[in-house]
Design a binder for these strands. Structure first.
Lengths: 128, 128
DNA sequence: ATTGACTGTGGACCATGGACCACAGTTATA
DNA sequence: TATAACTGTGGTCCATGGTCCACAGTCAAT
């Protein structure tokens, strides 16, 4: 599919897609159409990568980091060990973030409880 | 405490602290020292806010959003209902993020398992 | 053949979240 | 009193992650 369709399906802007291509996060094929400036052809695999990109962003990774992740290419199953180690590391980072967020949720919950039950005890401290 | 001590204790840079003050995330008192450009005096409450700021950033909130959060001021316990609603909303956003991240962890785990057990079945799809 | 939609390239521009710098006033210490 | 260290202000600069625009080539439908 060409860039407009790809952007629509991945819910990215055409400009963003082009940026990702320039940054090496996506590697569309060079199609036959377009003459001197051949059109880029995106695949279903690129759609999956787009999902990864958005997930990574929600996670606070930079495009560079996401590119590193994507280009380790757990997608084709080659060079297993390196990829596995890399993924395991990312997994642990995610798990760490989750526990941070859970602390924050507990904090907000405590704050809410404290507000609902006026003036009982001190304002709950944010977990150090 | 003055800005350098505050920066040290909150593990922020002096520049970052000044930025947060300009953006309205921190509201140090105007001290008596400093003459025509009075020095800012930071409190223990500001230290707590600094922790909130860093948590919010790790979470991907913008300074503006963090400022809105901080300035709803669940900290002093005034205007309960509005604050509670606001906090509850933030709490839900956090919970949503957590579940996103959990999906991502599952995905990575599945990917790892798939890589370890070579070629068994298709590469796990990223959860739509 | 013309028109309109799509494409790539290149560049300008933007907001965010800072770092860094010069300058001048202030303070503390010696 | 001189000096170093700290302070605020105002400004520039930077990377990141885009948007937007003009331009020209290409394609598809009429």
């Amino acid at each position: 599919m060409m860039i407009a369709a790809f952007a629509r399906e991945s819910r990215l802007s055409v400009d963003a897609v082009r940026l990702y291509v320039r940054q090496g996060l996506l590697h569309p094929e060079v199609g036959t159409k377009g003459g001197s400036r051949p059109y880029q052809i995106f695949s279903a695999l690129d759609l999956e990568k787009a999902r990864i990109i958005r997930a990574g962003q929600a996670l606070g990774l930079s495009l560079k980091e996401i590119g590193a992740f994507i280009n380790k290419r757990a997608f084709d199953g080659k060079e297993g060990d390196v990829v596995i180690a890399f993924l395991a590391e990312q997994r642990d980072r995610l798990a760490g973030r989750i526990s941070e967020l859970e602390k924050l949720v507990s904090y907000v919950d405590a704050k809410i409880a404290w507000l609902r039950n006026p003036g009982v005890g001190p304002s709950p401290p944010y977990p150090h």
